[in-house]
């Protein structure tokens, strides 16, 4: 059993899950916004990093990790809501490249401002969990307390979002506003408020993601630290289907595992090439995503 748990393939699966949950969270926050406003939030990573800086760099370094995380989440909520009210709201009904350009502009501004205030050098966060792998019979198991913390936190966040959408009145309104804005407006749902809440939720999920990414001792917190993670998260969301939260999360996890195998058996540079290849093939075969059943656009 021990030999099995420390074997190469099991290690790859465990390590893959730890990064897969991150991609799943990014994909989830992209889907939250896509479903409600039909926009791909290219600034998602930068907004999340900015919220994390607010939580971990403005407060004194000795502040408790969990307090900082809570501040980061609140900052995410505020940043997401403010972005929707100030910027995104002006872009509804415009040609589809306008929101893309605007969000890329926001990405550039946020990353530059973060770098101007807190410099581009990496800032380690005082994570309460060790990143040293557990040992079984003096062999590492590819699973550390930090990885377990990462996986558990991500699953909790996903569960909270799922429960919110499934079991609360607010969740019902959010779904209604996303699927049939006109009808729900007639039925008394305050659609524009729902859109704001959708952006707040998405950015809060992003803030948790960025905290998890930055908590990793090897990466730390950098202004552009989410660029790569965002790319993987987008690929996961696009393969799973931008309309399907479950699909996005499942494909995020699956991609994490696949990438770990590629990195282990081929080399780490090949990962993004494989990811790009998978994205292209999946978009060619099923442009709307593996898990989506929506009608395909005719033209």
């Amino acid at each position: 059993m021990d030999a099995f748990l420390t074997s190469r393939n099991v290690s790859d699966v465990l390590g893959g899950l730890a990064s897969g949950v991150i991609y799943a969270l990014v994909a989830l926050s992209l889907v939250l916004i896509w479903r409600s406003t039909r926009m791909l939030n290219f600034a998602q990573g930068a907004m999340a990093v900015f919220a994390t800086y607010i939580g971990f760099a403005i407060l004194a370094p000795s502040t408790n990790y969990w307090v900082s995380m809570a501040v980061a989440i609140v900052a995410g909520l505020v940043l997401g809501g403010a972005t929707e009210r100030v910027l995104v709201r002006r872009l509804y009904g415009k040609p589809e490249i306008n929101p893309i350009v605007a969000m890329v502009g926001l990405l550039l501004v946020l990353e530059s401002v973060a770098a101007a205030i807190w410099s581009t050098s990496s800032r380690p966060l005082a994570t309460p969990f060790s990143i040293v792998d557990w040992q079984l019979n003096h062999k590492p198991m590819a699973l550390s307390p930090f990885a377990v913390y990462e996986i558990v936190t991500s699953l909790v966040v996903m569960a909270i979002v799922a429960a919110l959408f499934q079991y609360t009145k607010l969740g019902l309104q959010l779904r209604a506003a996303a699927l049939a804005p006109e009808v729900s407006r007639l039925l008394g749902v305050r659609v524009s408020r729902m859109l704001t809440i959708g952006w707040m939720l998405s950015t809060a999920v992003g803030a948790v993601t960025a905290v998890l990414v930055a908590s990793n001792f090897f990466t730390g917190l950098t202004p552009s630290g989410m660029d790569g993670v965002f790319a993987f998260g987008f690929i996961a969301a696009a393969i799973g289907g931008l309309d399907s939260p479950v699909g996005a999360m499942v494909s995020g996890l699956a991609l994490g595992v696949v990438f770990q195998f590629v990195g282990d058996y081929v080399n780490s540079n090949a990962i993004i090439l494989v990811a790009l290849g998978m994205l292209i093939v999946s978009l060619m075969v099923r442009p709307s995503g593996v898990f989506t059943r929506s009608a395909q656009r005719r033209v």
Binding site: M39, L40, F42, E96, I97, I100, A231, F234, I235, A238, L242, I272, A275, L276, L279, I280, L283, P287
Partner: peptide
């Protein structure tokens, strides 16, 4: 739009 932009970003 967004899909192509995302792919080129990747």
């Amino acid at each position: 739009g967004p899909y192509l932009a995302g792919m080129t970003l990747a």
